[in-house]
């Protein structure tokens, strides 16, 4: 395996780079979309159940199906990385919008009431009280979405754009174990590191959560 890495480090590095941004760009986009969507589902309670259902349906669509369906829908080329980014963004939104909504809903109504009674207006209350209190739940969802994205990117290799997934297809075609193993290890490592980074961020921004009952951050 060391031998393989020495001979092919440029290929591996390029694949890794592509993998990182194919996985993380959708996380950022999805998070940015999920925040307002999740909030709306709390603000207008009748939206919550439709949102949960739509998210459930979107999340249950197999990735390969979405990857090959999107070019038809968006008019993009099959080989365009946009398909992967859009598909993973959809998954991220499907996962996070619900998490954001659940997180906001889980805020103790007493806390919200106290904030209102102290004279917070709706937006101030959201930013200063509800979002911070919901943050541990939201960040837990972000961890799941990030790790899932990183492992899903490689399926894209079947339509030609898949970061480390290309090492899998290459190894498979050549009946050659090394690239597959390298790809799996790097993918898992990447997921582990991304997860760890979010945990560290979470510790830093929610120092209070450690003292909550059962809330081992």
């Amino acid at each position: 395996m060391i031998q393989y890495l020495q001979n092919n480090y440029e290929v591996v590095l390029t694949a890794l780079q592509q993998h990182v941004w194919l996985a993380l760009l959708p996380v950022l986009l999805g998070f940015a979309i999920a925040l307002p969507v999740g909030y709306l589902a709390v603000r207008f309670t009748w939206l919550y159940h439709p949102l949960v259902n739509v998210c459930g349906v979107l999340y249950s669509i197999p990735s390969l199906a979405l990857f090959v369906f999107l070019p038809v829908l968006l008019g993009t080329k099959v080989l365009s990385p946009i398909n992967i980014v859009v598909a993973l963004t959809i998954y991220t939104v499907a996962l996070l919008a619900r998490t954001v909504a659940d997180g906001l809903r889980s805020v103790d109504p007493l806390i919200t009431q106290a904030a209102t009674a102290m004279g917070y207006r709706r937006f101030g209350r959201l930013i200063n009280v509800e979002l911070p209190v919901a943050l541990p739940v939201i960040l837990a969802g972000l961890r799941v979405a990030t790790v899932a994205n990183i492992s899903l990117v490689s399926v894209g290799a079947l339509i030609g754009v898949g970061g480390l997934g290309q090492l899998f297809t290459r190894g498979f075609q050549l009946f050659y174990l090394e690239p597959i193993l390298v790809g799996i290890i790097l993918s898992v490592l990447l997921a582990g590191i991304a997860d760890l980074v979010i945990v560290l961020i979470q510790r830093a921004v929610t120092p209070w959560a450690r003292f909550q009952r059962g809330g081992a951050a």
């Binding site: 790790v147 899932a148 899903l152 399926v155 480390l164 090492l167 297809t169 190894g171 997860d195």
Partner: peptide, 19 residues
Amino acid sequence: GNAGRSLPTLGLLMLMVTL
């Protein structure tokens, strides 16, 4: 749970077939 989520599906599949 975490380990399972981070395992790339395609890689695992191709690894098994190659093996």
